[in-house]
Structures are given as C-alpha cells and as structure tokens.
Design a protein around this nucleic acid. Structure first.
Ligand SMILES: [Zn+2]
Ligand SMILES: [Zn+2]
Ligand SMILES: [Zn+2]
Ligand SMILES: [Zn+2]
Lengths: 144, 144
DNA sequence: GACCTAAATGAAAAAGTTTTTCACCTACCA
DNA sequence: TGGTAGGTGAAAAACTTTTTCATTTAGGTC
C-alpha cells in the first residue's frame, strides 16, 4: 500500500516538522501522482494548487520527506554521471559508501526475476540497473 | 577483462572518429583509474597530462565513448532526482522507456546474490538499487 | 610533403539544477 | 494570545550540462 497524505502528515508531525500549506500542496501532488516527478515537475503541479510557492521549498520538502523515507527517490536513466572504463561483459557494481571503492561482478542472475516480471506486466524488458552499496572491509575496520 | 586504451582507440578509428591528443589523454585517465569519475574529476586528472583541455571536450568525448559502449556510465547515489510517493515495503521499479509508465514490484530476491557478493568481497552490504527498463504493452503495440 | 575537408576543439554564453544566505513570516505550544 | 523554533521566498551563488561559432587539426589523397 502506498502511504497516504494523512499518514505522511502524521509522521511529519511526530518527527517535529510543521505542517504548512506549502508542504500540504507538495504532498497532495506527490501522493496523487502515479509517475515519478522531478523537483521542477512537482513545482509546476504544485503551482496550480498554491501559486507562488518557491522551488527552494520544494527542494527542502523533498529532502525532509526523503530522509524520513516517506517518498521514494528514483534514479533516472539520464542525469547522474560517473564513468569508468568498461568491462567487455555485462556487469554491475558494488560500491563502498565510505571510500568510493568499486568492485565489479558479472553474474547478476536476474533472468528469472526478469521473466516473471515480464509475464506479470506485459513489459518487454530491455535492460536493468543493479547496484549494491555497503562498506568495504577496510572501512569496516576503520570504524571498529 | 577491462578494455585497454589500445583497443578503445581501435574501435574509435573503425567507427570513423579521429584520434586527437585530447581524446588520448581522456582515455588514458579513464583506463588507468580504478574508480568511477565524474566529468569534472576526469578533467582535473586530464589537465595534468594535457593542460588547457576544455570541459566541453570531456563531455563530448564521454558521450562518444558511452554511445559506443566503450566506457560504463554509472548512477551515483546522489545526483539524479525523481520522486514518487513511497510504498511502505521495500520495492523497485520497472519503467517504460517510451511513455514513462512505472510499475512497482516488491519481490526482488537479491538476498542470495547479496550473500555471495558479501562473502566474496568482504563488503558489508547495506542496500541495493535495482531497476528494470523496457517497453510497456501499449508502447509495444504502438510501434507494431 | 602539401592540400583538402569533415570532424574536433575551446571560449563564451546560455540553460538548467541545486545550495546558500538572510530577512521576514507562521504553525504550534504553553 | 504571545513567543519562538522552524519554515518560506527572493536573490545570489555554485554547479553541471548544452549550445553556438570561429578556429584548428587528423587523416586521407595526390
Ligand atoms: Zn571503503
Ligand atoms: Zn545484470
Ligand atoms: Zn510505455
Ligand atoms: Zn530490493
């Protein structure tokens, strides 16, 4: 079940955040939309409800909601760029969130899941994005 | 095996691209680095080898290399922002590259792969990113 | 080696996104 | 009904990415 506006407001209040008309407008847009929206797209929709709201407020609200896990932040195919020499084979990355070290792995085994999803949704799946995040051995030691 | 600078140059030439000193410098940086690098980070390193090279050239070269599949473009944890109301459960997305429609799924089954990677690399894996891209039923029809 | 041309480059400007700053405002609690 | 911590908007700053255009150059041809 998707979180309702009411539930989100409740969590915000419990976490000590104020419920402003701006935040309500942003919540209304997000909870009523099926698609993923960029901050500017959210602003555009919010302005129908609450003209004059600033993009800054959208950014700030999204950050709060995101930190509380109340909205989900998605990685768009374009937009975040970091590059590395390519392996010839299909592969993915395991990245250390502490030091940035990257390990590659080639056996992603997503075929079965992909088939299941394809059958369930009717999508013709063309590619996938997979990435693991964690802490490498050294960085684990460093903390201990 | 990672692609060597020599091999990349060969493919570039075969594809009709010119081999300029700027491109060589960029290739040298990318093929000799273990980490993922942002365009600015690449420029910084390139400038040791070839001072005066422009950031624009870096962007242009990365695009060419990326289109030819000679480098790999990675999604960084920050930087690409699109938001949606959250499901309460852990979930991922299947997105239509044509119309943007998004389907959520909750059974990602990555536990086994995660354990294997963890054992192999010593990483303490904290989270993962998974996303499928394809064409939805409607968009498949539209083409046919 | 000199010449030609399509492709590549660099500088500058434009466009777009995200963050910072700061004076003013307001939700919410006592 | 204050008081105050937290929130807002406008403007500016900081970045990233794209576009434009005049100039240069790699690589093929003679
Ligand atoms: Zn590390
Ligand atoms: Zn894979
Ligand atoms: Zn579609
Ligand atoms: Zn998952």
């Amino acid at each position: 079940m998707r979180l309702t506006e009411k539930k989100i407001v409740e969590v915000l209040r419990q976490s000590g955040y104020k419920i402003t008309p701006q935040r309500r407008a942003i919540l209304e847009v997000i909870t009523h939309s099926q698609e993923h929206l960029t901050p500017s797209a959210i602003l555009e929709k919010v302005n129908y409800i609450h003209p004059g709201i600033g993009l800054v407020t959208v950014y700030r609200t999204l950050e709060v909601l995101s930190n509380l896990g109340l909205i989900c932040r998605m990685h768009t195919a374009e937009g975040c760029h970091s590059y590395k020499g390519a392996l010839q084979e299909h592969h993915h990355h395991l990245t250390c969130t502490e030091c940035g070290r990257v390990v590659e792995f080639t056996n992603c085994d997503l075929g079965e899941l992909e088939e299941r999803l394809s059958a369930q949704t009717g999508f013709n799946i063309e590619s996938h994005l997979l990435e693991f995040l964690g802490r490498c051995r050294d960085c684990q030691k460093a903390v201990a």
